[in-house]
Simulated scan of single mutants.
Amino acid sequence: MKYWIVPSNDRTFRIGDAIAAQNGMADWRTNKFSEGDIVFIYKTRPEQRIRYRMEVIKSNLIFNEIFEQEEFWTDKETYYSGYITSYARLKLLEEYTDDILSLDHLHEHGYNGQPQSVREIKDESLLDFLLHPHQIANDEAYDVDYPEDDDKLYEGALMKVNVNKYERNQKARRECVAKKGYQCLVCGRDFEATYGEIGKNFIHVHHLTPISTIGKEYELNVDTDLAPVCPNCHYMLHRKNPPYTIEELKDILAKQSVDVVAKPKRSKKADTIWLQSDANMLRDVNDDADVRRLIHNMMEMDGGTMMKNITSVCIGMFTDRYIGMKPKDWRHLIDDYVRGVTNRSELKEDTLFRYKFG
């Protein structure tokens, strides 16, 4: 078995359209591939990233044996010149919808230049990255702390992490998640709970002490120097220099969550003064999407939010809308809702969104 990177330009052949129309297969003009080979299709500008991983299931096909692909060839002259050329049939194994295999990341893992022709991959480090991109990126490239708008610091940090490691990249990361887990310390996001098996053990590790301020001999303290955070929060932490602290970003997130529901869109029904009996009021509160959204946002903001805090915010936000609603009824309603959402999250049911908004 061999591994290949192949450039593809939609101005010549729209391989994505061919794959979609031919049940995940496409015929590629070449005599270099053998059955069982793995081919990484690199999309040229403007994408500049590997888009598909495909397996060769047939080789040395002649023109009369291939799919009718004329409609996918933008360059008709090149298409008709292929009568005397051999083809290989490729079957889609995986489509990469993110930038995990971008040209920059390929360069970081040993690929030189730009894919301009069919190239066999023999470098073991590069091949390991191509076969396990998310795992390796999560362990290495995506754990680099860097200020977004400072190219010099970014390149310096990246170089030092890749070369010197600061003795933190692997061992320190493992120690950090072993002690602090895979839940974001800012927003509480747990990728396994959200995405299931594919999110297991995924998290970024944030360096609380900016690496631009320390030397390579700096001895890390996992308890005080590292924190597990989700990619979004990791990015936001570095929106200023020096970075926000974990507590500062939590405060920003908390304020934003409250602001979102501070002035909810009110229906004509909600603009009236509600003086129903307790039973009717409970039913209306339970069906109120604004109330559900507030509770849900507070739960997402901090998985450890105490029930009394959610209750206090709800009472403060919706007192005018539900005059006469008793605090104990708020507590019971919120408790039932939180338990319901939690159960759906644990069961990974797809009804969670409908439960949130009714």
Rank of each mutant, 00 (worst) to 15 (best):
D75I: 08
Y96S: 06
I41A: 10
T30S: 15
I273V: 15
T213G: 03
L101N: 04
E55D: 07
L185K: 12
A21D: 11
C314E: 00
F202W: 10
E346D: 11
I15A: 11
G324P: 06
A289W: 01
T351F: 15
Y355P: 00
D335H: 02
N138P: 02
S267N: 03
C314P: 00
M1V: 14
N297W: 11
Y166F: 15
L158W: 07
G110V: 12
M159F: 08
P133M: 10
K250R: 15
D123I: 04
L226K: 02
E148T: 02
E349M: 12
S257Q: 08
F318G: 00
T351N: 06
R89E: 03
A270D: 03
A289T: 04
L352I: 14
G181E: 08
T44P: 02
V285M: 02
H206K: 07
I57F: 05
D225N: 09
R293G: 09
Q135W: 08
E192C: 06
W274C: 10
K58D: 05
S312Y: 03
M325D: 01
E155P: 00
D37W: 06
A137K: 08
W28A: 05
K328F: 13
M307G: 01
V291G: 01
R239C: 04
H105E: 09
K308T: 10
L101K: 06
Y154H: 03
D128A: 15
Y42H: 13
R174Q: 14
G16L: 04
E120D: 11
H107I: 05
N286H: 08
G82K: 10
G358N: 10
T85K: 13
A193D: 15
L127C: 14
E95L: 11
D284S: 04
S345E: 15
I252R: 00
A157D: 04
K91C: 07
I252A: 01
E217D: 14
A26V: 12
L103R: 12
I246D: 06
K356E: 08
L249M: 04
Y322N: 00
E247V: 01
F318I: 00
F40V: 12
V338W: 02
I41W: 03
Y83E: 03
Y142T: 05
K43A: 14
C187N: 04
N112F: 13
T74H: 08
A227Y: 06
K180P: 01
T224I: 10
